[in-house]
Design a protein around this nucleic acid. Structure first.
Lengths: 186, 186, 186, 186
DNA sequence: GATGAATGAGAGTTCATTCAT
DNA sequence: TATGAATGAACTCTCATTCAT
């Protein structure tokens, strides 16, 4: 179990994603993050070796997070259409609810800093489920990477649209789920 | 007096996207950009009011660019499946060929700095074509935003995958196109 | 007679004192001055060798100016009290009317840049008049520098006060004139 | 952690007035000031929010200073002529001794930057003393602002003269005091 | 003569990081 | 452990000035 104050480590993590959402990566300085976290800049260096190190650490922690959330809500017992519905809806929900975290992961993932942080596109367990659905003849036998692409990417567009026009996004999401179901299910 | 040198403006634009690709937004300082462009840092301020202004200007210029490229290769005369094939393939090609530009647009689009730069998701002309295909009974009558989502987003995943595993991406792209065709065409 | 465009030279002179009044010496850059004068920064260097040179030149031109103005309104024919009244009133008037010029001369006079620009404290002709008044037994035989001090300095305070409290400054000036008259006249 | 070092704050204050005296307001850059103070430019920003803030703070601190000095040497117990003699002589002394401080206050007071820093022209206590002298029939019942003007302004001219011609300034000061006494005392 | 472009030098300021407590 | 002070390096940007037209 970790020494030091896990509350502080947490404050810093939250401050990082919050500041980056509000001000952008380029404006996320250690002092601003420290201030937002309610600690001294020096304290950041008690928990992380350097700023880059901190960002990488937090990225790795958060990048896998969504898959854990998804796993909590999914199982092989569901019928295929329900599975996809749940999957997409939970992902959408996650992006909306953890906007800061999602934004950070997307932004940092595009940085040279993140190269080398190997993030599984869909961790073992979820991959297994998808492939089992394929073996069961529920999902089409597409390249598993394309399955992932269809499950994760179009919904990002829906989120973006929902930020511009608050109103119709729920209907849009419902329709999108239907499209994906038709595309992936046999 | 000297006239403003369009070559210099261009060098700066290219330097911006190049440096941001190589070093990331947060490391793209005016001096690095100027050095890459072969001009003095002060010269940048002859062409742009501020760094932010420069990024915004270049963003606006480039963000619409892809749509022009797509328009050049697409027309209502094509059969629906060919249209989608061309659309997705051209987009993929564009991302690969203008990696720097695409990366810059994606990264900057996620910055608070870009808020307010209103970029049409698909400009009039392309929108018209899609809707005409719908009227002709070729494309399904989905929300036009969902059509865009399916045409633009999954392919991004394919590009990302292609960066990790050089080999099979062509096959993956072909398959993805087929999936999208099935999803969108009647 | 000077070549070049005296209109431009004049614009620059006016721009200098105006910008310095509005923004302060430290913010009076060549480009701002040029913009205020409606000329190009390069044009300034057609008329002056350098910025410092320009400031010095203009200082010398303006610093003596007040004495010319005073001379226009004063002569040895006046009774002593009228002379002092006119003197002080004209000086007050000048400070108010040519606020920019006065401010510039006061500010620049305090700069190391101005050291070496020898400005007579009261040029010959005015000095002569004062000494003649002394010889005539009208003015007390004080050190001529003290006469100057009494004629020029207290009124500056009155101007400053008048900027803070618009109302009573006229009465204050009248009283001040009376005080000076009593102090200097036999 | 380290405590804020009052020695450093002091060094900076002294450096500000020194550099401004030697090089002028417009040449008083933060780096020059920092170098003169023996600290890093960044350290200046530990003690002050900005350069302007620093100048304003120091101005406010120093601008009132002379009145404290004067108060230390003056009291209502003196006969009127002695009071004026002391007052003017102490002021003269102060200007000579704290040349840097006086110069800074005068220069900065003429800057747009100083607008809003409300400095009392003569703080309560000294004002009270002057008015008491008036009530006692010692000082003439002139507008109190004119009293201040006579006590503070002419002596500035004497100081300026003394810088040009080292020799006779003592006699000039003595005479000036006498003039002021005659002007203000009943 | 007049100008806008161009720039090295330097402005004010913030950065990531270390130090002393 | 935790901190505010301290700083060299780097930031964005403006300066005074020169150059090419």
């Amino acid at each position: 179990m970790r020494r030091k104050d896990d509350g502080k480590r947490d404050s810093i993590k939250k401050a990082v994603v919050q500041v980056i959402l509000e001000q952008g990566m380029h404006a996320a300085s250690v002092s601003k993050i420290a201030k937002a976290a309610g600690v001294s800049p020096a304290t950041v260096y008690v928990y992380y070796e350097s700023k880059d190190d901190m960002l990488r650490d937090i990225y790795i922690e958060y990048a896998e997070n969504i898959y854990k959330v998804l796993l909590n809500h999914l199982s092989i017992d569901m019928p295929g259409d329900i599975f996809i519905d749940r999957f997409v809806r939970e992902y959408y929900q996650y992006i909306i609810e953890y906007e800061e975290v999602f934004h950070f992961v997307e932004q940092f993932g595009g940085c040279p800093l993140s190269h080398g942080c190997h993030i599984l596109k869909g961790p073992e367990r979820l991959n297994d489920i998808l492939m089992q659905y394929q073996r069961l003849g529920v999902l089409n036998n597409y390249d598993i990477k394309n399955i992932w692409a269809m499950l994760l990417y179009p919904v990002k567009a829906v989120v973006k649209d929902s930020k511009n026009s608050e109103s119709t996004s729920q209907k849009q999401l419902d329709e999108m789920i239907m499209i994906i179901q038709k595309a992936l299910l046999k």
